[in-house]
């Protein structure tokens, strides 16, 4: 997980563009992915710059970016909580896990807590079905989630965040 860099009025994308010289339309998705990896999300400014680089209208780029689930247009919190809602996780009660998280963090999917610590996202399947129900916080998997396990995970994360301050 890349750290989120505050994108200022004009984000410098020259380093990324340098890796895609004379790029055509087929470079659009990899470019957007790389930008999101670096800056955490796609801002209007970065999308304009991509348009200028690829000679594509901004509307077309938004068309592509909004089609795919991966792209975000708002910055993420410090901890990116992904709740797997695959079939195996569903059968093992991931709907309850999601409800619990919503209650604990007081946010819904796609939102970030007001202290900027947690972002909640629902994903279709993270491919760890044998360990259902699973959640992923940044790059770490947490398997066989229950209400009490969730409480422990978030308690530990909050503590970690406080000690870092």
């Amino acid at each position: 997980m890349a750290t989120v860099v505050e994108a200022s009025a004009a984000t410098d994308l020259t380093a990324i563009f340098a890796r895609y010289p004379d790029a055509g339309r087929d470079a659009l998705i990899p470019l957007l992915q790389e930008i999101q990896d670096t800056f955490g999300y796609l801002s209007l400014d970065t999308i304009r710059q991509v348009g200028a680089h690829l000679k594509l209208p901004v509307s077309k780029i938004y068309g592509v970016a909004t089609f795919y689930n991966q792209f975000r247009f708002l910055a993420l919190g410090k901890y990116h909580v992904q709740v797997c809602r695959g079939t195996a996780c569903h059968v093992k009660g991931s709907a309850g896990v999601l409800d619990d998280i919503k209650q604990m963090l007081k946010i819904g999917p796609g939102e970030t807590t007001s202290d900027g610590l947690f972002s909640l996202e629902v994903v279709a399947c993270i491919g760890a079905c044998g360990l259902a129900p699973v959640i992923k916080v940044n790059d770490e998997f947490h398997a066989d989630m229950t209400t009490s396990k969730l409480e422990r995970v978030f308690k530990a994360l909050k503590k970690e965040a406080e000690s870092n301050e």
Binding site: D26, A27, I29, L32, Q33, V64, Y68, N69, A124
Partner: peptide, 18 residues
């Protein structure tokens, strides 16, 4: 980039093309 429909051949091709 996360779209189930891209398992369909022609959709996948469109995605590869950007």
């Amino acid at each position: 980039a996360g779209a189930f429909v891209c398992g369909e051949e022609t959709a996948l091709i469109h995605s590869v093309e950007g």
